[in-house]
Amino acid sequence: MSLTREEVEKIALLARLEISDEEMSGFVENLSNIIDFVEQLAAAPVDGVTPMAHPLDMHQRLRADDVSEADQRDLFQQNAPAVEAGLYLVPRVIE
C-alpha cells in the first residue's frame, strides 16, 4: 500500500468529502493502486521537456471589462436548496 488510511482521510478532508468507515478501506486500496499505477511516469525521459498546459499553441484571449450579463438572481436561486431574501442560507458560521 503506497497510501495509509490516515493519508486517505486527510485527502478526503482536503477534498471536502465525507467517506464512511465501510467505504474507507476500499478507497485506501483503490487509491494506492492508482498511485502505484501512475508512478511509472517517474521513469519517463523528460529532461528538458517543457510541461504542456494546453493542446494548441494558444494565448489566453482577453476582452474588455464590460458588463455583459443581466441580473438573473431570482432565476439562479430557483436551484438553491435554501434561500431567503435573495441570500443563500448556510449553517451559522460566525457566533
Partner: peptide, 21 residues
C-alpha cells in the same frame, strides 16, 4: 463534506481524491 459525500458516487470520489493528492 456530507453533501459531496452523499451526492457523488464512488468513481467520482476516487478521481477527486486522486486529483487532490
Amino acid at each position: 463534506r456530507r453533501s459531496r459525500g452523499e451526492g457523488f458516487g464512488a468513481e467520482v470520489k476516487r478521481r477527486i481524491m486522486t486529483g487532490t493528492y
